[in-house]
Structure formats: structure tokens, C-alpha cells
Design a protein around this nucleic acid. Structure first.
Lengths: 234, 234
DNA sequence: ACCTGAACACCGTTCAAGT
DNA sequence: ACCTGAACACCGTTCAAGT
């Protein structure tokens, strides 16, 4: 291999640990996207062979699981807890922080999507939130369900928010201005047969999704408030 | 190629249309899962070459988009509309049907996840639901947001529901009985430091998710009811 | 004990050449 | 106009062989 002479004969500094592999994998995803994450490319960046990675990681699936856990760990340690909050403020803070977090890292929503990363990081994250819900008067079951509801909502929302528009609409035009193509498509439907689609078209194909996110979150929290009681009397 | 002599010299019956390709792709996913869907294997089943598929489909991404639209079409045409329903009954029916639908077809949630399949099928599906919400008194914006909220919720929920448990927990044991391993993991945390995780552990690692689904859906619809007014007075 | 090289069985996509 | 064969540039994973 004459292609990478810069490193010379020096071996890599670290002796190829699992954490080193995960850190490198995260850098790779952040820089080039999830589809760029291959065992071979990762090995290349670590100055080793793909086969060597299998000494530290069972397979690619486990590697992505570990990357997911690492991402989740970042989110957990970035969250700050203020004790003098009511349950609603806590859930709003966690939900909006989680959304911002997922929006900020490349392909994070796809790495985390449909992965139940049960580990230290998750436990540390949910303990104070469960506490807030229990203090508000919910039982252990409802507290668990409610927390789960918020997390799944945010994850599902961001998955849609960051999704590339389906290829049929993203034909030639630019990134998110393909939304105007969708809006036009929706407005093309005859108003007599599809009056509701017609009038809601602008809201179904909006560029910014902040309003939609907070509408959904508010609806959800209003529903929880009914179960908790207006003033959280325990 | 001596490997497939059964078909003899006969060409395939149909002249390789886009719809034929999509139908075959769906059968392949249903039988062998999403990772079995490759251009080469698909071509093989159609008695042709992978390269020939590119005459009818731009690339694999578009193929999966078309499969998603086809799936969505099935769901839309399976839904029946009874006019004498209130908005809440309509949303419950759509949400539970959508969940059952996603649970019933192999990998459907992954095909649909984060894909905004805007087409005829979607429009036909949402028109009557939007109508129900408008009739209940919501404006065009809130109707759109509310419908979107329910769809995203179901999709996010099922994505978690069908997700393979992260590899670290699904080590040796059977499919869903790995849940007991997760529950044990959660209960291992010291009760003094993590009392809430401890007490909620059984609910965080349940085998059946029906209760959780309906809890979430009810919370959500309760929240919407507040916006609509108890008796839907428009 | 740890890593390498090479191989196995695959991928998506392109394109000159055929009919 | 439509399809084929062959090639290009990749994949994940395994395993005998090396140090």
C-alpha cells in the first residue's frame, strides 16, 4: 500500500480499544454520514485491517448499537437538571433538548431510530424524569408510559423532520424547496373532491417544523395534565 | 447459467413493467426481509439482469420509495369509513388499524419509517380524517397538525415495538424473552440511587405493548379533545 | 493473545455492445 | 428501444497463518 505514506512506519498510538473504535466510528458518521460507515473504511482510519475490528466488536450491528449508546450518553450528560421545576417544564425541556440534539448530529435519528439502547446512559437520564412524574402524582406504570410516550414522539417526529423527501418529489430541485413541489401536488387535487387536503396543503408541506413540533408536544402534555390534575396535587 | 433450468428457454410472461418490479420487490421483502431486497436478487426472481431494472427505476432508493407507496396504498384501500363516527372514533380506528397493518407486514415499519410518501394513496387516506377534524371544529392548520401527530406517533411507536433489542441484551437468549434480561438489568440498579427506575422496571420492559399503545393514544386524544371542546361544538 | 492477508460470497451502478 | 455481459468499486465476515 503506497497510498498512505504520511503515517510512515509508526503503528497507531492507541492499541485499538473498543472505545477508540466507537469514537472513530462516530467521527466517520458525523463527517461522511451513516452510509459511509463500513468496517473497511473504519479500519482504514484506524490504520488496521477490517478483520481486526472483530476482536473488539461482534459485528457491524453491535458497532452501530455502541455508537447509538455513545450518542445517547452525550445527550444525557449535556442535560442539566433544575430541581425547582414542575413535571411539565421538565418534559418540555427534555423533549426540546432531545429534538435539538438529534437535529444537530448527522444521521443521529437514523442511528437511534428503533433502537432501544438500554444502558447506564438511559437509566441516568430517565431517573429524574420519572421522579418528576411520580412527584406529580402518577403511579410507576403511568410514569413509565408517559416518559416513553414523550421519547417515542420526539424520535418519530425528528425521523420525519430529517427524512429526505421521497424521490418522486425530490426530482431535480434543491433540498427543502422540494416542499413547494409537494404543496403544489397537494393543491392540484380538485377542490370539490378533496376540499380538506386542499385547504390544509400549506400546513402539510411546511418548511419549518417548529410550530408543528410544539403543537404536538402541547397536545401530549395537555393529555398528561388531565391524568395528573391541574395543580399536580399528589 | 445452468443453475436455473426449470424455466427453460421461455421468457418471462410480463414484459418487465415498473408495477411488476414493485410487486416482486414486495414479495421478496415479505418473504425474506428488507435486507434480502437487492437489485440482483430481484432481477433473478424476474428472470432478468440487475442492469435491466434501471430502465424502469432510477435507483434502489426510488425502488424502496415505490414499495413504500404500494404498502401505503394497501392500507388506504383496506380502511373503511363509517360516516356516523365522531372525530375521536375516527382517529382511534385509523391509529389502531395503522398499527395492526404495520405489525402484520414484514419490515413495513422500516420501509415506511422516515419516508414521507406523498401521493394519491396518502391524499385519499387523509381527506376523510381531515374532514372529521374540521367538522369537530378545528381549523385547517390544527386539523393538519393533529392528523400528522397521530400518524407520527403510530409510526414511531411501531418502530420501537418491532425493533430488535439492542445486541448487548439479545446476546444468547430467545427473541422477546431478552426482555427479561433488560428487566433484570434495570432492577440491578441500586434502589437507593435509582428508586424510580427500579419500581418502573416491569413497565419499561413489558412483552406486550398493547397497553402502552392505548395509553399513549388516549393521552394524545385527550389533549386534542381540549382543543376541540368536550362535545365538538363547532 | 492479538493481528494480518487473502479469500468467500455478496453489493449498487454504469456502459459498451448486442438484438 | 430495450436488454445483456462484463466490469468497477465497493461490501460484511471468516479463517488459516503469522508474530
Amino acid at each position: 500500500m503506497t497510498g498512505r505514506p504520511a503515517r510512515g512506519t509508526a503503528r497507531r498510538a492507541e492499541p485499538l480499544s473498543a472505545t477508540g473504535i466507537i469514537r472513530c466510528a462516530r467521527e466517520l458518521v458525523e463527517r461522511d454520514g451513516l452510509e459511509a460507515l463500513s468496517m473497511r473504511r473504519l479500519a482504514d482510519r484506524l490504520d488496521t485491517q477490517a478483520a481486526s475490528l472483530y476482536r473488539h466488536v461482534q459485528n457491524k450491528e453491535e458497532l452501530v448499537d455502541l455508537v447509538a449508546d455513545s450518542l445517547f450518553g452525550d445527550f444525557e450528560s449535556a442535560l442539566e437538571y433544575s430541581a425547582d421545576e414542575d413535571w411539565r417544564a421538565t418534559l418540555v425541556r427534555v423533549a426540546t433538548s432531545y429534538r435539538s440534539f438529534l437535529l444537530a448530529r448527522r444521521d443521529a435519528e437514523r442511528v437511534l431510530a428503533g433502537r432501544f439502547v438500554v444502558g447506564q446512559n438511559l437509566v441516568r437520564l430517565i431517573e429524574p424524569v420519572l421522579e418528576a412524574l411520580r412527584a406529580a402524582g402518577l403511579g410507576p406504570r403511568d410514569a413509565a408510559y408517559s416518559l416513553y410516550l414523550v421519547i417515542v414522539h420526539v424520535q418519530g417526529f425528528v425521523l420525519h423532520e430529517k427524512a429526505p423527501l421521497s424521490a418522486s418529489h425530490a426530482v431535480g430541485e434543491g433540498r427543502l424547496s422540494a416542499l413547494t413541489s409537494i404543496r403544489a401536488f397537494l393543491e392540484e387535487f380538485p377542490e370539490e373532491d378533496f376540499p380538506r387536503v386542499h385547504e390544509s396543503a400549506p400546513y402539510l408541506a411546511e418548511p419549518g417544523l417548529d410550530g408543528r413540533f410544539h403543537y404536538g408536544l402541547d397536545v401530549l402534555l395537555d393529555g398528561l395534565a388531565l391524568r395528573i390534575g391541574v395543580r399536580g396535587a399528589d
